[in-house]
Computed example of a mutant assay.
Amino acid sequence: MIETGLTTFSAIVLAGGRASRLGGADKASIELDGRTLLARSLDAVIDAAEVVVVGTQVPTERPVTFVVEDPAFGGPVAGLLTGRDQLLRRTPVLAVLAVDMPFLTATTFRRLTAAAVGHDGAILTDPDGRRQLALVVETARLDAVRPGREEQHGAALHRLLEPFDLAEVDARGDEHRDVDTWTDLRDLA
């Protein structure tokens, strides 16, 4: 259970998907209003003590660790746990976000961290109540439910999170929007 909203956290940015609906484009390098989706993600977790990006290494202004899950394209659970394994610091909380959510901000993660107090974590929800890939979780709790390596590849994130007591935090504005297609990108601009 997370005990304080001011807890130090590490962050894992999930940027290693196939982006098949974008013709295989590297989502991290896609630009929106002159900034890459990765730069926007890193801004959202500016308060993190350490950041691991799970995906192909691309230029960035911030010091981060890049790693690719093995086998590649294992999905969000494999990416999350690969990122977790690369963290050098032990922090009580992990922030997790998809690189394709350009409207997440540091304020989003401060709200998630504050809402997580008394819970195992907190997750962002869209206006229809669907959970999004922007969350904070207690590190020890994640470690306790971690599946074996064989079960990680292709595993559904919602299944991994089933035993967690997660506070749901309503998205503000466009925080929940993501870029899955070129039309999504056009509509966000």
Rank of each mutant, 00 (worst) to 15 (best):
Leu104Val: 07
Val64Pro: 01
Thr108Gly: 01
Asp26His: 11
Gly79Arg: 00
Thr8Gly: 15
Phe66Ser: 03
Thr139Asn: 05
Gly129Leu: 08
Ala171Met: 06
Ala28Val: 08
Leu94Gly: 03
Asp128Phe: 07
Glu69Lys: 08
Pro63Arg: 11
Val137Phe: 01
Leu88Tyr: 08
Asp33Trp: 13
Ala11Thr: 00
Arg110Ser: 11
Asp120Gln: 06
His158Trp: 15
Met101Thr: 15
Asp100His: 00
His176Thr: 00
Ile30Pro: 08
Leu88Phe: 09
Phe103Lys: 10
Thr183Phe: 08
Ser29Glu: 12
Leu38Thr: 06
Asp47Phe: 07
Glu31Phe: 14
Asp47Trp: 07
Asp180Gly: 01
Leu22Met: 11
Val169Asn: 11
Pro127Arg: 05
Leu166Gly: 04
Thr65Ala: 13
Val179Thr: 09
Ala115Tyr: 11
Gly118Lys: 05
Gly5Met: 03
His119Asp: 00
Ala95Cys: 12
Val169Asp: 09
Glu50Thr: 00
Thr105Glu: 02
Val67Arg: 09
Gln57Trp: 03
Val54Gly: 00
Ala39Ile: 03
Asp187Gln: 05
Trp182Gln: 07
Val54Ser: 01
Pro147Gly: 06
Leu14Lys: 09
Asp120Gly: 09
Arg111Cys: 07
Ser20Asn: 13
Leu161Asn: 09
Pro102Trp: 03
Gly154Lys: 10
Pro127Phe: 12
Glu151Cys: 11
Val96Phe: 12
Asp70Phe: 01
Arg84Phe: 01
Leu80Trp: 06
Leu14Gln: 02
Leu104Lys: 04
Thr108Asn: 08
Gly24Phe: 12
Glu69Gly: 09
Val58Phe: 08
Gly79Val: 04
Val64His: 01
His119Tyr: 13
Ala156Gln: 15
Thr36Tyr: 10
Pro63Asp: 10
Thr60Gln: 14
